[in-house]
């Protein structure tokens, strides 16, 4: 038995045992209809185990440990999302008790779309995030360029400041910001949220742009300049193709982060018209059938990051992975 065969058999055995355990627990402890979820998971795990045994002695370069891991990962990720969906589709007046949706009612989604409060909150979130992102990226790109390419004294200090601001508990600033806004008489206006929101967007934008800048092949710029390109040509031939995609991806991440900010929005706004969506959902969660509304709105809101992820999956993963290392 070669080592890889042995490893596959172990993976198969583990997968099988796991499936067996899950199946038994499901049959014994979990009432229907969720029992089917457990059984389905158990079947998949046990099939993986069987496939592992069948394919153990082939030269296919495939790791059954990895397959098992990805299966567990998929269950881990999807079950809460399914539950969110179930909560969102629970009919009015009912409480979701099972993971699988029993009666699907789209009224919460209808409500989330047609509700004036939620719509206004979403508009606030998008508007504030958009302005804060544009300002932050406009400031961050030159800053990141300087940090990566130019001689800057106190580079580490500046960088430390950015990181500190990135990791700071923003909530701690919400109180003083609110106090300031009240004394300026600006408490409660949408635009007043933009400046505090820069606390979230600016460090993140700088941090991500630094990563983008580090990945740029700068010798190419030297080559373009040596070839005698004019400034606009440098911009068109070098900056747009090499910096553009990265900066766009960074901006999208910053935008999503700003949209999802909770503490600042919840602290710096009364309920309308300036309360952003996450904070509005906190209020909504306390109302009758609030959970459904919150889950529905959350799933709809999830479309924004989902679209960003679907459009630029590779770049986003790359950017996030490289930034935080």
């Amino acid at each position: 038995m070669t080592p890889s065969v042995r490893s596959r058999l172990w993976a198969s055995a583990t997968s099988f045992a796991l499936g067996f355990g899950v199946g038994n627990y499901g049959v014994l402890q979990v009432p229907r209809p969720d029992q089917w979820v457990w059984i389905a998971v158990a079947v998949v795990l046990m099939l993986t185990g069987a496939a592992g045994v069948l394919f153990a002695d082939t030269s296919r370069a495939v790791s059954f440990w990895a397959i098992l891991g990805v299966e567990v990962f998929a269950v881990f990720t999807l079950v809460p999302l399914l539950w969110t969906f179930t909560v969102a589709t629970t009919p009015e007046g009912a409480t979701a008790r099972t993971l699988l949706p029993q009666d699907i009612s789209w009224s919460a989604f209808d409500g989330a779309i047609s509700s004036g409060t939620l719509r206004s909150a979403a508009t606030t979130s998008l508007l504030v995030a958009l302005v804060a992102t544009v300002v932050a990226v406009a400031l961050a790109v030159p800053a990141a360029y300087a940090l990566v390419r130019l001689q800057v004294r106190a580079r580490r200090l500046v960088y430390g400041l950015v990181v500190a601001a990135l990791l700071m508990p923003v909530l701690a600033l919400a109180g003083p910001f609110a106090d300031q806004l009240v004394s300026l008489g600006a408490y409660g206006s949408r635009l007043a949220l933009v400046v505090p929101m820069l606390v979230v967007t600016l460090p993140l934008a700088t941090w991500l742009c630094v990563t983008v800048m580090r990945d740029v092949p700068w010798t190419l710029l030297d080559a373009v300049r040596a070839d005698g390109a004019t400034r606009p040509q440098q911009l068109r031939r070098f900056a747009v193709p090499h910096l553009g995609p990265g900066v766009v991806a960074a901006a999208l991440l910053v935008f999503v982060a700003a949209c999802n900010d909770f503490a600042l929005g919840a602290g710096l706004a009364p309920d309308r018209p300036s309360l952003p969506l996450p904070a509005t959902l906190l209020v909504a969660s306390r109302q009758v059938d609030g959970s459904s509304a919150v889950a529905a709105a959350g799933l709809l809101w999830l479309l924004i990051p989902l679209i960003v992820l679907l459009v630029l999956p590779r770049r986003i993963n790359h950017l996030l992975g490289r930034s935080y290392r």
Partner: peptide, 10 residues
């Protein structure tokens, strides 16, 4: 990254 996209409040 999908879970991270879901709002923390949700």
């Amino acid at each position: 990254l999908l879970p991270f996209g879901l709002l923390a409040i949700v």
